[in-house]
């Protein structure tokens, strides 16, 4: 293989990427919001894990944990977490048909069916969790 020859380095101008590149295009900004949303999804998982830990410490400790979740600031935080989690979930569900190519025999399943199946799976799993956590 012959590597391609570049002009001498001192004759080239190398541009630098701005720190604010993610504000230059709407799609870049939305990408950053999607990445940021993972932090809030992780935060919710962390809060839930703390809940399990508090539960292991006894009923009184767990009650204190539940009381802390009822404060106005915690409620606002949960609304923010919910919004970011929904954004995270919906954006990834919409990217699923691009990533997953489902083949049945020699035929490819249309991407729209993969999208519908992803939505159905999300709804069904959410309903099961809702039943297990809140109804039961």
């Amino acid at each position: 293989m012959n590597p391609q020859k570049s002009p001498p380095e001192d004759l080239l101008y190398r541009p630098h990427m701005s720190f604010w590149w993610w504000l230059q295009k709407r799609n870049y900004f939305l990408f950053m919001v999607r990445e940021l949303s993972a932090v809030f999804v992780g935060l919710f998982a962390l809060i839930s894990l703390v809940g399990v830990y508090r539960l292991s410490q006894g009923e009184d400790t767990y009650q204190l944990y539940l009381n802390a979740l009822q404060t106005p600031s915690a409620q606002v935080l949960f609304v923010v977490i919910l919004l970011f989690s929904l954004y995270h979930t919906l954006t990834w569900i919409h990217l699923t048909p691009m990533i997953m190519v489902v083949r049945i025999g020699s035929k490819t399943v249309p991407p729209i069916l993969v999208l519908i199946a992803s939505y159905l799976a999300w709804i069904v799993i959410s309903l099961i969790l809702f039943y297990l956590l809140l109804v039961n």
């Binding site: 020859k5 570049s6 002009p7 004759l11 080239l12 190398r14 541009p15």
Partner: peptide
């Protein structure tokens, strides 16, 4: 994102 050789011509090596 590419080095510039001259005006609008970039180095594609």
């Amino acid at each position: 994102h590419f080095p510039v050789i001259r005006d609008l011509v970039i180095d594609m090596s």
